[in-house]
Write a protein that binds this DNA or RNA. Structure first.
Lengths: 121, 121
DNA sequence: TCGGAATGATTACATCTGTAGTCATAAGGG
DNA sequence: CCCTTATGACTACAGATGTAATCATTCCGA
């Protein structure tokens, strides 16, 4: 799967949330903080099509865009990449790191323990 | 902190492992798979200096390079970035994701539970 | 029916990145 | 003392990315 750039991801997020959509509809839904013009969104859509992570279907003279990959799979790939690069491919050092950096609230700890308990049963 | 590119990270890893080093010494230690020339390594070093993530100290007519940031901090930043972008800034969904994708071995689970127990005490 | 608006395609351009090559210079060996 | 060589600085260039503008075409509303 080709890499999705940071800006392109904003477009993917819109379409993972709701699809299919036209270019104009995607542009409406991109977070306003981006301050993107419609032209910019169209460029993103073309590049994402070229990368094969979006599909399009013709509807009259327009396209309806929809994701060609699942968010779940993309997240898995990016998480794996981080774990490989930063933690030697092992998950435990990641959790240890998060723990040491106070990223875990008591509620988080409870919930993670619950997840792990369920995993064992 | 400025972003460190993928290739540049290979140079940082060398210097986090051992420093200070000259450009030639860094080049020797970069993983051979990269197949980099000395010139490439020098370019990386310059760019990392410009980004402020490396320091240099003159030693005769050469430089000795050393990290200006801790690996720990860089890892924290990159992990935080992933968690923000992929998991809405929350750690628990990340762990849930890893669990669902079979990234956790029984040994991992044990060790994570241990980390969490210690965190609570 | 006709003209403006909307659409995808194409082009533009600056910056970042990967991957060097060149160049002036200084230092060390003979 | 001079020449080779190692070094940092500068330059090069293609591909990815952010951010559009332009262009040909086609559809819809008046």
């Amino acid at each position: 799967m080709e890499r999705i750039a940071e800006g392109e991801l904003a477009v993917m997020e819109v379409l993972w949330e709701e699809s299919p959509l036209t270019a104009a509809e995607v542009a409406e839904r991109v977070p306003a903080e981006r301050g993107w013009s419609l032209a910019t969104v169209k460029t993103m859509l073309s590049r994402l099509l070229a990368k094969g992570v979006l599909d399009h279907q013709e509807a009259g003279r327009r396209y309806l865009y929809r994701p060609a990959i699942r968010r779940e799979d993309y997240v898995a790939e990016e998480s794996g990449r981080l774990i490989d690069r930063m933690f030697g491919g092992r998950v435990t050092p990641l959790v240890a790191h998060l723990a040491e950096h106070d990223r875990l609230t008591p509620a988080d700890i409870e919930e993670i323990e619950k997840i792990l308990r369920e995993l064992k049963s």
